[in-house]
Amino acid sequence: MTTQIADVQGAYDASGAEKARTLQTIYVYEAPVRLWHWVNALAITVLCVTGYFIGSPLPSVPGEASANFLMGYIRFAHFAAGQVLIVFFLLRVYWAFVGNAYARQLFYLPVWNKTWLWGVFYELRWYLFMVKDPKKYIGHNPLAHVAMFTFMLFLLFMMASGMALYSEGAGRDSWQYALFGWMFSIFPNSQDIHTWHHLGMWAIVTFVIVHVYAAVREDILSRQSMISSMVSGERLFRDDLKD
């Protein structure tokens, strides 16, 4: 792990008065991670919107069937975004191996680490307004770490179930079926895969609500930057209070 801490001595407030402060920035999110994050965000948005309209199609279009392809285009957009999601996920997994330590956080929970476990509960108390200040974390705070890991599991399920559904149209001799046909051993009636894939969308929408809220809130309240970090990659610590 190559963490570089740049100390910026003496920050100034709006009126130009010098405050004895130290600002530290650390490079956390490498470019591929940031790229993945925003591609993912876009793909998931497209998938949720198109997925919703696959489940509850728009009102019928007038005219000849041969002159219209609305459902076809919506499904096409869904499948295209789905493939993008999967390809970038694979790249992201690759980056977990070659990237810095923070690139690996999403994929495992250090449950054996006592400090980390303590941190989960400490952060939980911070969100429940029970402690005054959160801790500083370079990567994800432990609670966010749990949330992210869970989200990855949901994404994996969405990708596996999505590809299984896709294989139904692609055919029993398709590579999609060869790779994801095992989903039908778990759910022999594909109606259940539709239902779970559909519920999965709501789970993801729920996550996005919490995720965006937490990111904005942390950005304002906590002792480190959030949103800009996912743009620049740099985490800015805004105070030099103890710990």
Binding site: G55, S56, H198, L199, W202, A203, V205, T206, I209
Partner: peptide, 13 residues
Amino acid sequence: ADKVGGTVAGVVA
């Protein structure tokens, strides 16, 4: 699925 999922998302929101 939409009622259950939508309710959960709504409550969380």
